[in-house]
Every structure is written in structure tokens, then in C-alpha cells.
Design a protein around this nucleic acid. Structure first.
Lengths: 204, 204
DNA sequence: CTGGTTGCATAACGCTGTTATGTCAAACAT
DNA sequence: ATGTTTGACATAACAGCGTTATGCAACCAG
């Protein structure tokens, strides 16, 4: 698993082959089959590892008196996790289809479990009156899809000057909070406040 | 090209192999190299075809007196195009990495060219006073990344009940317009009005 | 000590993209 | 009209991929 993670992180998805893994581990390709039941099983294990790392990032975000600031920080943590493990993120969401392998329905369900943190935060935003009336789970999905899209295009190097990923991301954070019901002033303040928290809380 | 497009659409990315293509075309694999310089060239040609189809969808959206309604319709057209050509869309944005092939920087630039339609519409929304002060190109990028993320997760079957893709999409359209500066009432009206236009203008 | 089970090395099969070689036909020049 | 040259394509091979059948060797139970 460690070797597979290192190969994926250092050299990308195409380096994650049974033969390469066997050579690197000093064994034969059969080890992959006895331990993971094939490459699909190994990739599945990697994906689970990826969601665990995402959950780790989320768990670093504290609950403060400003739930919108917390929510924005969750978004920043999401992007930070993706940029820290770009190849792993690509595998998690099909950005790299390794040998036609695709996740099962329950694997996808497992991934969506990490959304629970976002749903909880959305609930707090609603209760604080910062978001307009709405479904916390629906709002969480809207934020997720939006940030996921930005991160995906950023990793694919589609976002370049003058609309680089960082600029679009900052503007999007404000727009998403306003779209959820917050005022422009309050959202701008919370987004700004979350900027420093990324270093102190998440990156720490 | 026609055979490649049909193979990709009917059987997905893994069916798009040089040998399969040669068998289907009644020739040898060398034809791929003389005509496209390899599989990379063929995939590149497919991607260009994909962006052309996206542009076709965009061109069907008329400019009306309600620019926000037009903008929402562009979003619907974008999603409609992706759902009509799911495998092609996956290849366009790296959702299916065929043999480690990746687009060049200028290929990505070509893809971004289709954003011009969205930028123009954003400019009209700004001039009409429906969007708050802002950069039309930046707004276009925000809308693009958001809709792209939703479509990507929808094609990956990550969006299931009760937050299915359709429901998240409708809510997101309103939120994005509000996030860009429109009022909730006006945005809701324009989103509702665009719903019927999808059938009459885009699907036609 | 013996019998069974488990883990992995070896080798092979079918698949992939790619390429060197050869052949043949079309196009061009004289 | 004829000789030449260029180009496209078929054939076959190479390296790599995931996967699997076979066999050996180590461990564990009785």
C-alpha cells in the first residue's frame, strides 16, 4: 500500500501497474492478487485511503461562532487536500481511469459519507440565519459539486491567467455563500477570515 | 473518425483501441498512424470534435431580453451536451485517461475558446444590471467550473437520491445567479423560464 | 512426523500502443 | 508514354499491460 501510494503520488497513475509495483516491492505480480484480488482491489483500497485523507482534512476545521467561515474553510480544506494528493484525487473521482476500472455503487456511497461534515456545517449556517431556508444536504451537494469542478479543472491545468484557479476560487467562495443565502458583506468577511485559518488549522 | 466516434459513444473509452478501430474499419492499425500520428492524435481529434459539438449547443441559445435566462439556458445546454455525449465529455476533460494521453497546453486553450459565448452573455447580464459589478470573464469561469463539477459527478454516478443531479442542478442554477448578483426572485423567474426554452431551442 | 493449506514465483495468454520492414499503387517528371 | 519517386498501408514483431494456471516452499494442525 505504501509503495503504491508513493508510486501514484510521485509518478502518476500510469506508474501504478502490477509489474511496476512487484518490481518495486521485490516480489512478483501475484502478490497483488493474493492481497487485493487484482488491480481493481488495489485501486479501491487507494480510493478509500484518499477519502480517509479528505476526512482528516475536514476534521481539522474547528466549529467557531461563524459557521459560514467554517464552511468556507471546509472548502479550502477540500481544495488543499486535492492539491496535496493530485493523482490520488484524480483516481478517486475517475479523473484517471486505470485500465477501465470503475468503482462500485457502494464505493461511491462510501465516498459520499465524507459529505456528512459539510451537511452538519450547512445545518449550523441555516440555524444561525446566515443561509436562507433550504435543505442542508442539498446545499452541501451544491457546494461540493462547485468546488469539485474547480479543483478538477485546476488539476487538469485548464485554469490559467488571468482567471487562474486561485482567483476563481476566492470569487467562487463568496458567490457560493451568497447563493446559499448569506449577504455579500457577511460572506466577504467570513471568506477573508477563513484565509488565515487555512494555515493555522488545516495546514498545521 | 466516424467509426471512432461511434465506438466511443456506444462502448466507451476502452473500446477505442487501434486494433479494434482497424478491425472495424477493415484496415490495419497503421492507418491510425498515417492519418493521426498515433492514438494520441486520434484522441485529440475526438476532443476537438467534442468542443465543436459543445459550441453547436451553445449557438442554439438565442439572445433574448432576459440575459440571465439566456445564461441559465447556456448552463442547461452545457449539461445537455455532456449527457448526450457522456464518453466524449469524459475524454475531453480527462475523465478517461486513454493510455496516459494528456492534452497539450494549446489543446486546452482551444477548449477554453468555447467559453467566449458564456463571457459574452455574462457581459450582457452585467450591462442589464442583473449581475453585480464584476469581471465577465471571471463570472464565466465560476459558472463553468460549477456546472462542470456537477456534470462530472453526475456522469460518475455520484449524485443519487435524494440529492439527484437534476435537483442539485436546478438549485445550483438559482444559487449561481444569486451569487453573481441577481436577486432571488428574478433568478428564480429566469431559471423557471429557461426550463421550457431547453426543449424548444436546444433540443430542437 | 505427516497432511493440508496458504503465499508467492514462474511462465504463459491475450490484449494494448508502437514501429521496422516490405509491398504496391498512385502521382509526378521527363 | 515511360521511368521515378513518393506515399499509404499490410505484415510482423517488440515491449508492456492485467490476468491466470501451475508448481514449489513454507507454515500450521493433528
Amino acid at each position: 500500500m505504501d509503495i503504491a501510494a508513493r508510486l501514484l503520488a510521485d509518478e502518476g497513475p500510469q506508474a501504478l501497474s502490477a509489474r511496476r509495483l512487484a518490481t518495486e516491492a521485490g516480489s512478483s505480480t501475484m502478490a497483488v492478487y493474493t492481497n487485493f484480488g487484482g488491480m481493481s482491489g488495489l485501486v479501491r483500497a487507494m480510493v478509500y485511503e484518499g477519502f480517509a485523507r479528505l476526512q482528516d482534512h475536514f476534521s481539522k476545521v474547528a466549529e467557531t461562532a461563524d459557521p459560514v467561515c467554517d464552511m468556507v474553510l471546509l472548502g479550502r480544506a477540500y481544495r488543499h487536500n486535492a492539491l496535496t494528493n493530485p493523482h490520488l484525487y484524480a483516481v478517486m473521482f475517475g479523473g484517471a481511469s486505470l485500465a477501465g476500472f470503475s468503482l462500485s455503487a457502494e464505493d461511491r456511497q462510501y465516498g459520499r459519507y465524507t459529505l456528512g461534515t459539510v451537511v452538519a456545517c450547512a445545518t449550523r449556517c441555516l440555524r444561525a440565519g446566515r443561509f436562507g431556508v433550504g435543505d442542508a444536504e442539498l446545499i452541501a451537494h451544491q457546494l461540493w459539486t462547485a468546488v469539485h469542478g474547480l479543483v478538477t479543472l485546476e488539476l487538469g491545468e485548464y485554469l490559467i491567467e488571468p482567471c487562474d484557479a486561485g482567483r476563481v476560487f476566492e470569487a467562487q467562495l463568496v458567490a457560493l455563500m451568497v447563493g446559499a443565502g448569506d449577504t455579500l458583506q457577511a460572506a466577504t468577511r467570513s471568506v477573508a477570515a477563513s484565509r488565515t485559518r487555512l494555515d493555522t488549522e488545516v495546514r498545521a
